[in-house]
Amino acid sequence: MTTDFIIGHYNYWVIIVLMMLGLYVVMSRGNLIKKIVGLNIFQTSVFLLYITIGKVTGGTAPIIWEGREDVVYSNPLPHVLILTAIVVGVATTAVGLAITVRVREAYGTIEEDEILAQDHEAEVTEGASA
């Protein structure tokens, strides 16, 4: 494993760690707002991965430099895909938060275990009355 290899892959590894931290928050934390923040971390790490792949060494932003033939541009395609993804990401965040607010109205809590306990209780009383 040479230094070049490590520098060439450092981005990928850090991004994978970020991705896994986001996934861990989503899976292990019971608070619904915290879960949404975890989802955002996961999402942003995917953006970072795409932009990393689109970078060209010595390149510049993909805006045409008139009268210059020797300019190297970074790959514009990942940028376009991620622009779309960022906006869609905010849309999903908004819907997630709206659901959280409704859950809070209906259950009085946004902790997953308490919601599950209430559901269980409701099922038990339903079974007893039936």
């Binding site: 953006f47 689109g54 970078k55 932003a61 990942p78 960022i86 905010v90």
Partner: peptide, 22 residues
Amino acid sequence: LDAVDVAFTEAAVGAGISTVLM
């Protein structure tokens, strides 16, 4: 990483609107 368009969208939408929504 040369993705200036993505950067200003992320700064406005990701750091701005998302935080306000949260």
